[in-house]
């Protein structure tokens, strides 16, 4: 420390800090996938009820984000990526984060139950419980498989959206769940490959830290391979079609060949180009998810306009 060190006092919390507590970037993904789940359902929902349902799902996701920030403040303080979040930076007290999280959880579940139905509300409540308790409090710090199980929390939103429209669970919504569930591990492991010092400093057991990078590369390959049939199967349900199939085929080929490239690399090669291939694969994984769900939305839009893929095989 030099005498020029400025001691920054935490400033008073602004409204934006409370909004940041809800993890708006995660929330935007939840809004997108929940909306696709809701709009691809073969039931028409009044636009206002659809809007309100998606909003309450987003609020529920935000509430679990706030609970996660309350519980993980100690981890967030040591990680570069999360240091400036409202709780670790001292702008919002952990207790306030907890209060906001609990009450927004209750509000979102009750309101979704009143707006849509009890199945959707129950699924949302389970999602919040799963993310805040099962993932944040229990698994995240205890097993390198944290990401695999935690991925389920992120995979629920399209199911909740589907349930808000149809009042139930079906093959389509389970496949959408499977798509995100199996996509999450390779996505986060690719990130952890080049952010591993952050995680090891915080003591979070991520696969590259606990089992080494070669093992992580094998895991990424494995998940990329089992992800492909699940995502392709969606093409042959009532929410899929040739457009989705074409998009999915291209993305799966890119994803598997990207994973293959990572598998064939040594750590020395990765160090030499500063994890260029890993970073590229991480960006590709974002695109993979985004385009799959955009394609589902595209198929839904085609059906709305009355377009029908004549004799398209629907296996389920």
């Amino acid at each position: 420390m030099t005498d020029a060190t400025v001691i920054e006092r935490p400033r008073d919390a602004e409204f934006g800090d409370f909004f940041a507590l809800l993890k708006p970037r995660v929330m935007s993904l939840v809004v997108f996938t929940a909306a696709v789940g809701l709009f691809s359902a073969p039931v028409s929902v009044h636009p206002l009820l659809a809007f309100a349902s998606i909003l309450f799902i987003a609020v529920g996701a935000g509430a679990s984000g706030a609970l996660n920030m309350w519980w993980d403040a100690d981890i967030d303080r040591v990680m570069r990526r999360t240091r400036n979040r409202p709780v670790p930076s001292g702008r919002i007290s952990p207790e306030d984060a907890r209060t906001v999280g609990i009450w927004l959880s209750v509000l979102s579940v009750v309101m979704l139950g009143l707006t849509a139905n009890m199945v959707a509300a129950g699924l949302l409540a389970f999602t919040i419980f799963f993310y805040a308790v099962v993932y944040s409090m229990w698994l995240k710090r205890s097993t390198p498989q944290n990401i695999v199980i935690g991925g389920a929390a992120g995979a629920f939103p399209p199911m909740v959206g589907w349930a808000a429209a149809t009042g139930g669970v079906s093959v389509e919504s389970l496949l959408m769940f499977g798509l995100i569930f199996l996509w999450t591990p390779p996505h986060f492991w690719a990130l952890a490959m080049f952010m591993d010092d952050d995680y090891s400093r915080a003591g979070v057991p991520m696969l590259p830290v606990t089992h080494g990078k070669p093992a992580t590369r094998r895991h990424i390959m494995f998940y990329s391979l089992i992800l492909a049939p699940v995502s392709l199967a969606l093409a042959f349900t009532q929410i899929g079609g040739p457009l989705y199939l074409a998009v999915s085929l291209v993305l799966n080929l890119l994803f598997i060949s990207g994973a293959w490239r990572l598998l064939k690399r040594s750590d020395a090669e990765a160090e030499a180009d500063r994890y260029a291939a890993e970073k590229k694969y991480f960006r590709l994984s974002l695109l993979y998810m985004l385009l799959h769900f955009t394609a589902l939305l595209g198929e839904a839009a085609l059906r709305w306009t009355g377009f029908d893929w004549a004799s398209w095989p629907q296996w389920v």
Partner: peptide
Amino acid sequence: RRRAHRNMWLGLVLGGFVVLVFGITMVK
């Protein structure tokens, strides 16, 4: 000023919530 700003936003959010619940009721 900061608190006034925060309260204004909170007011807007609560107002929006009331309008939304009214809308949902009407549709139902």
